[in-house]
Design a protein around this nucleic acid. Structure first.
Length: 567
RNA sequence: GCGCCUGUAGCUCAGGGGAUAGAGCACCUGCCUUCUAAGCAGGGAGUCGUAGGUUCGAUUCCUACCAGGCGCGCCA
């Protein structure tokens, strides 16, 4: 058995192989047309009494050859070879499902694998080391992070971890938009605040940034080097103030993200691209390929040739021929690919969905295949307090930052709530519920299972039980209660689950999985007393509890949520 | 006007061409002299937004419509 994959994965592949061979035989006998080549998928039946595994492939074939699923299933069952297999029985059910009942022989090695791999259990080699760059949050360096940034941070970080565990080489990157117009506006806003601090009559300019945070930065700057700054000539001063503000704000963003448990591999500066003039090369390249034209004094990119709904301006019609933001953005994505990444994943906010087509078109224009870039849109967050929506208006000043959210509910609840929902659905975030330290708060359900196991081991230690009885010494056959078997099955599924979730880019399913594990554990805990007079049984159950703790800890780690020893 | 997201249990949301549509919270009934009751077992609760279409079969796919949200710059 290949150590890079999971026991359950091998079991499923074995079943798939047997069905495929049965279908081939049926084709040889002329019962199925030779061109038949169905995609066989193994699923878990909706109810446990329907078996351990199931497939709907017979219905799929039935559709193709205009026959009913049940008779197709009958043909497959007639030809399937079950020698040397844990499959004990195959049933045809409902409209043509094949339901497989297995003996427990596969569970023992699956459990031994958890014990052997410990903290790395869940890892597989499916990603084959493919180099992936996930860029996320990338908030403008003009103010503090908000709650959508916090959501994107949770989703991006978790997806990155999921893909790492699935065998991809993943890097996390934050793009700092520290160039262009907005930085000048930021500088001008800071200058106004600086003058205000010094008692001058100054107004934050039109289109500037009015938040309190600039006032704080201005106060600090004034104390350190206010005179010096005002003595600069205006151009140099704006340049300095822009860099200063960006540096301060980005440092703050980084600090908050670290508190969230999120560490980036690279912080990529847009200015570094501009300084190298790399972004003008993009314009030249598109020109050479004949994908541009001049109109109304501006240079346009024929993005409609690549599926965009209208052509886009690259260079504006002003005197300097200033580049629009798509240019550095394309240069940035080109740069990522030149750094050797084979897949780029961008996690963007809801305000960017009108932007996807032109970014993709640009990359295609530059000669890249459209599937090097995947874009995930994280939808908005609506905060609720006392059953009321918390109004978030930047101008009105009532604005909850990511930092305030973390102070209020903590990182574990924040991450859990953000990961609970699918990223593209709008999220109602109930602050009251997230803050609650009681059973009403779903975060604790999973953490509590972990803490309970830790508690069992503390108890067992006091009683002098052997804590480290591994798969070779344990009498595995003692684990036969339905709740024990159910728990083992779900633990065995972890590596495949992680891989499927990573492939689907649906981190919210990880929360579902760990909640299911917690349910299976709590049920086991209630039905089966772990520590008792029977030494062998105690050891077997301690073994199972340990395996469950490993899976919970690993799943929580991937989600960026802590696994408490006690609650 | 165009585009994107969303309409599923009282609330917040999963799911998804097929087997009795699920979870958490809320509500009701049981269960702590034994490893944490932040738990377990069970119960009530649903015309899957509306109307058509494709299909042996649609809550799932297609079309139209209705409702909520968000975008739509030679701003980033």
């Amino acid at each position: 058995m290949d150590a890079t994959y999971s026991v359950l994965g091998e079991v499923k592949r074995d079943i798939i192989g047997r069905i495929a061979r049965a279908i081939s035989k049926a084709k040889e006998k002329g019962e199925f047309p030779p061109e038949l080549n169905p995609d066989i998928k193994i699923e878990t039946p909706s109810r446990p009494e329907l078996g351990d595994f199931a497939t709907g492939v017979a219905m799929q074939i039935g559709r193709e050859i205009r026959t009913d699923g049940r008779s197709v299933a009958g043909v497959i069952v007639r030809y399937v070879d079950l020698d040397n297999s844990p499959i004990r029985q195959v049933d045809i059910a409902g409209p043509g499902f094949l339901n497989f009942f297995l003996d427990r022989s596969w569970l023992e090695p699956a459990m031994a694998r958890i014990w052997a791999e410990g903290p790395s259990y869940g890892s597989t080699g499916y990603g084959k080391g493919k180099k992936v760059l996930i860029e996320f949050v990338s908030a403008n360096p003009t103010g503090p992070l908000n709650v959508v940034n916090a959501r994107a941070a949770a989703v991006g970080d978790c997806l990155a971890s999921l893909m790492q565990v699935s065998g991809y080489e993943v890097h996390r990157e934050y793009y700092i938009n520290d160039a262009g117009n907005q930085v000048r506006r930021l500088a001008a806003s800071l200058e106004a605040r600086l003058r205000q601090v010094r008692g001058e009559d100054a107004e934050v300019p039109e289109g500037g940034y009015h938040g309190e945070y600039l006032l704080d930065i201005a106060r600090e700057l004034n104390e350190a080097r206010g005179d010096e700054v005002l003595a600069m000539d205006p151009e140099a001063r704006l340049d300095f103030l822009g860099k200063y503000a960006v540096e301060r704000i980005v440092a703050d963003q980084r600090r908050v993200l670290l508190e969230y448990g999120l560490k980036y591999d690279t912080w990529f500066s847009e200015r570094s691209l501009r300084e190298g003039n790399a972004y003008m090369q993009v314009v030249e390249l598109l020109k050479v390929k004949g994908l541009t034209y001049e109109k109304d004094g501006a240079l346009w990119f024929k993005s409609t040739e690549f599926g965009d709904d209208k052509d886009r301006v690259l260079l504006k019609s002003d005197e300097k021929g200033t580049a629009t933001y798509i240019v550095p953005d394309l240069a940035y994505h080109k740069n990522k690919l030149e750094r050797g990444y084979e897949l780029l994943i961008d996690i963007l906010g809801p305000d960017h969905h009108g932007y996807l087509d032109r970014l993709r078109a640009g990359l295609m224009g530059l000669g890249y295949s459209s599937d090097v870039l995947e874009i995930l849109i994280v939808q908005m967050v609506r905060l609720q307090r006392s059953g009321q929506a918390v109004k978030m208006s930047k101008r009105g000043g009532e604005f909850i930052t990511m930092e305030e959210l973390l102070e209020e509910v903590g990182k574990d609840a924040a991450r859990f709530f953000f990961l609970m929902r699918s990223p593209e659905s709008h999220l109602d975030f109930d602050l009251d519920l997230a803050r609650l330290q009681s059973n009403e708060n779903p975060v604790y359900y999973v953490q509590y299972a972990h803490a309970r196991i830790a508690s069992i081991f503390r108890q067992a230690k006091e009683g002098g039980a052997a804590l480290s009885v591994g798969p070779t010494e344990v009498n595995f056959s003692l684990l036969k209660d339905p709740s024990e078997v159910a728990l083992m099955k779900i633990l065995a599924a972890f590596p495949e689950e992680v891989h499927e979730i990573a492939e689907a880019r649906e981190p919210h399913r990880l929360i579902k999985y760990m909640t299911d594990v917690a349910t299976a554990f709590h049920s086991f805990y209630t039905r089966c007393r772990v520590i008792g007079d029977d030494k062998a049984l105690t050891e077997a159950r301690l073994y199972l509890a340990r395996l469950c703790q490993i899976v919970l800890a690993n799943a929580l780690r991937i989600a960026g949520i802590s696994a408490p020893e006690a609650m």
